[in-house]
C-alpha cells in the first residue's frame, strides 16, 4: 500500500515540475512589454469603464493618455479635474481644467402636463417605441418614459419616477459620462455645465412644433414666443425651430427668463424660494 502512496506523490510532483517549467518558458516567450505608466494611469482612474471619455474603457483611455502629447482633448468626466491632475502628474504633462458637467432631461411632459392620446403596447424600450410612432401623446418630441437612459446609466443616477412619465437625473450621482445622451432616441438629454449647488435654469422642452400645436399637446411646452430671448441680459438664450435654448456656459443664473415664460417651460432648480411668486406676474401679463 505504501508504495502506491509513494508512486502517487512522485507522479504528481513530476507533473507539477514539468508544468512549471513549461509555464515558465511560455511566459517568457509570450511576454508583452508594455509601458508601465499605463498601469499607473489606469490605477488613478475611477475604474468605472463607463466609456464617458469616448474610449472602450479605463485601460484604453489610459493607453491613449500615455500616447498623447497633450491632455487637452482627453477628459475623464467621472474623475473630473482631480483625476486628470493626477494623470498629468504621472505623465509629466499639463492638466487642462474643464468645467464639470451634469446631465439634464429636457422634457417636463409628465402625465399631468401632457395628456395621453394613445397607448403603446410593445417591447418597453424607448428605441422600439420611437421606431413605431411618435409617442403616446401628441408631442412627438417628448420623453417616452420607458427608461433607455435608466438602463444605460452605470451610476444609478437616473430615477425613473414610476408613474410620472419622465425620469429625473440625480445631480449628486451623475458623472456626465454621456451614456444616457446616446441612449435617448428623442435626443432630450443634454450635458450642461454644473453650477454651484447644482442650480439650474433650463428650458425643459424640445418641442419644435408651432406654438399652438405644442401648447395643445403639452401644457408646459415651449411655444417659441421669444420672450425669454428678449429678456436675457447675457445672450445665453437662442431661438431655433420654435424652441428656446439656454446655453449653460453663458447663463449666469439670473432667473429673469423664468417669470416671463407664459407656459412655465423654463424651470429653475435648487434655488431658494423666491420672495415674489412668479406666477402672479405671469397671470397679469397674459
Amino acid at each position: 500500500m505504501s508504495i502506491t502512496v509513494v508512486y502517487t506523490i512522485v507522479t504528481l510532483a513530476v507533473i507539477g515540475a514539468t508544468a512549471a517549467v513549461i509555464l515558465y518558458f511560455v511566459a517568457q516567450k509570450f511576454k508583452v512589454v508594455e509601458d508601465p505608466r499605463i498601469d499607473d494611469v489606469e490605477g488613478s482612474l475611477p475604474g468605472a469603464n463607463c466609456g464617458g471619455c469616448g474610449f472602450a474603457g479605463c485601460r484604453a483611455f489610459a493607453e491613449a493618455c500615455v500616447k498623447a502629447s497633450d491632455l487637452g482633448d482627453l477628459n475623464c468626466p467621472v474623475g473630473g479635474n482631480d483625476t486628470m491632475g493626477q494623470v498629468a502628474t504621472i505623465l509629466g504633462l499639463e492638466a487642462v481644467a474643464k468645467d464639470p458637467r451634469v446631465a439634464f432631461i429636457r422634457c417636463n411632459g409628465t402625465c399631468d402636463h401632457r395628456p395621453k392620446t394613445s397607448q403603446f403596447d410593445g417591447a418597453t424600450t424607448c428605441a422600439i417605441a420611437s421606431s413605431v410612432y411618435s409617442g403616446e401623446s401628441d408631442c412627438q418630441f417628448g420623453c417616452l418614459g420607458y427608461g433607455d437612459c435608466y438602463d444605460a446609466c452605470e451610476f444609478d443616477a437616473i430615477d425613473l419616477r414610476a408613474g410620472m412619465g419622465v425620469p429625473l437625473v440625480l445631480d449628486d450621482k451623475c458623472v456626465a459620462c454621456g451614456a444616457c445622451v446616446d441612449a435617448c432616441p428623442k435626443d432630450l438629454i443634454e450635458l450642461r455645465k454644473r453650477m454651484p449647488k447644482d442650480r439650474k435654469v433650463v428650458v425643459a422642452c424640445r418641442n419644435m412644433d408651432k406654438g399652438a400645436v405644442a401648447k395643445k399637446a403639452c401644457s408646459v411646452a415651449c411655444i417659441g414666443c421669444s420672450k425669454c430671448f428678449k429678456e436675457c441680459p447675457f445672450d445665453a438664450i437662442t431661438m431655433e425651430n420654435n424652441l428656446a435654448f439656454i446655453d449653460s456656459d453663458k447663463c449666469k443664473l439670473c432667473r429673469k427668463c423664468v417669470p416671463v415664460c407664459p407656459t412655465n417651460a423654463i424651470i429653475e432648480l435648487n434655488f431658494p424660494p423666491r420672495k415674489v411668486k412668479p406666477e402672479v406676474e405671469v397671470e397679469t401679463n397674459s
Binding site: T117, S118, F120, I128, Y133
Partner: peptide, 8 residues
Amino acid sequence: KLLTVSPS
C-alpha cells in the same frame, strides 16, 4: 378608451 399602438 385610447387606441393601442404596437409594432406588428
